[in-house]
Design a protein around this nucleic acid. Sequence first.
DNA 1: GTGAAAGCGCTAACAT
DNA 2: ATGTTAGCGCTTTCAC
Lengths: 336, 336
Amino acid sequence: MSNINEVAKRAKVSPMTVSRVLNQSGYVKEETRQRVLAVMEEMNYVPNQLARSLVKQKSMTLALIVPDITNPFFTTVARGTEDMARKSGYRVIFCNSDDDFLKEQEYTEMCLLLRVDGIIMAASGDRSKANLERLKKFNIPLVCIDREVKGIDTDLIVGDSLAGARALTQHLIDLGHRHIAMVTGPLSISTSRERLQGYKETLRQNGIDYRDDYVKEASYNQQTSGQYLDDLLASTPRPTAIFTANNFVAAQVVRGLRERQIRVPEDLAIVTFDEMEPYCAVAEPLLTSALQHAYNFGSLAVQLLMERIDGVPIAQPRRIVLNPDIVIRRSSGEKL
Amino acid sequence: MSNINEVAKRAKVSPMTVSRVLNQSGYVKEETRQRVLAVMEEMNYVPNQLARSLVKQKSMTLALIVPDITNPFFTTVARGTEDMARKSGYRVIFCNSDDDFLKEQEYTEMCLLLRVDGIIMAASGDRSKANLERLKKFNIPLVCIDREVKGIDTDLIVGDSLAGARALTQHLIDLGHRHIAMVTGPLSISTSRERLQGYKETLRQNGIDYRDDYVKEASYNQQTSGQYLDDLLASTPRPTAIFTANNFVAAQVVRGLRERQIRVPEDLAIVTFDEMEPYCAVAEPLLTSALQHAYNFGSLAVQLLMERIDGVPIAQPRRIVLNPDIVIRRSSGEKL
DNA sequence: GTGAAAGCGCTAACAT
DNA sequence: ATGTTAGCGCTTTCAC
């Protein structure tokens, strides 16, 4: 693969002139420019971005670290990130932490090694604090999304989990449900905690007793064992509705209920956070849910990041809260 | 961010000694080593990978270019790729071409600029030939997956679309269907062509006339208009079964049928290529399908790539064909 | 065991 | 309008 010196030699100019042609900077006589371009073409010259980044101290690269690349929420975030980054001439490296602190740490180190210009992170959990602190130590522009990490203050874009959870729970209550269970995610993740809190608060406000045995904790991604479902269904009285904390948890529950021949919503109503896209249309029943605009999480995060990268003076970390849309569909059933 | 010279100075050694400690190469007195390590720690030293790659002429980076990052098939491929690459100490850059030739071209150029060590590509279509040829010109190790591109000879990993399509079609015929429609993908994609061919062949072998108006072409990802469904349903006689060419097409069709109050499989049977994971469990009805082992596509691709990167002598491009599993579920219905 | 010199491919800054 | 010099941060090579 040829380099700038070889091109320069062949075009009978200095490497600097080639560089000017390449970057369209400075003055180059049109005639020279054409000659240089011709030689580049002829030699199949491709500039070396590594060398460029090294001297410019800028890699034009962002990193997006997400906990689960198979979750449509995060792939949609990825698209939003990518689209917005491209508009500013940046590349994005996608990293999948698998909700694993150690993998997240590896990617964190990789970002440092590669001298990425900014990082967007959906933390794997509260343990992520250590990884985020490491990044902060180097003053790398950083935006957290979806999940807030205890004890770390960064630019942040989250969904309004509290409001969404309240609305979904209230919806069930309005339909006449009094025995409402919840399956939330790991409590090391802020969204799990907040959705649980919204559920609790709404029960209380409606004078419904909160029951510990109506609340189960499942994984946000892998298949958790169905044991918790049996426990829930064995409670007295048996819940007439379940609120699930995200799309994958909803899938687990719907599947579990089907295996047990329990009809939704006839026997049991379901409401959930997040959506079933891209298969939303195929899910049966269609789920009543608090829909989050994942794409916006990604594109907004890039915008915040760009301001940091460009050195726009910002007093303190910003916090953007995006409202979910409550979409009523069949799974929550009719008024009892 | 500190560099190797600063560390060297502070540790009262030459940069070379620091480098040796860093790479655990050559001889360094244990005492010196400890002192250097201490200084690195103290100064928060992180080696600059850009500089390393530049001098080593090796970036330890692979690229994976896929047409649709929201398709679970490709996210699973991505996982396979990532896992296997990490085992060999390589990073992977994920690129989403959006089934768009131009975006694919941009990523192709990016790979050249960044001097990635190898590329895995699920081509956007036959137009991709130009992009692949560009990469071949530079002798960059290259493996194509899932889709074969006309007129380009590279290492290749594909599913057995022909066999899968034959098995699915035969399954419908065995159930007693004689009026079988097919919704395939864009014919610029090899899998669409081969699945169509398998369908045609199987009809012929069973003495069933092939009808042009029973075959429609849809998008593999975006929502295609439902017009083709109306056309299919208006045919005389109306098809009693539909074979869809991939998971997203299946989703389109199932949704369309539901909107038209047509029951699956009672009114119309469905079989498909690929799966509905991760929501498989929620889909209703569960789809009879030709399941591909997406993870293996990714991990095998990396293995082939590694041999190329390591310069293992290989006579000519290799071609690996992976068999899909035929999984019979409810959507194909009972024997007529 | 350790270091000095040269160079990977490029560009910033200063000539001319 | 073009060239020269120096240096980004690292490793290779050879010297001691």
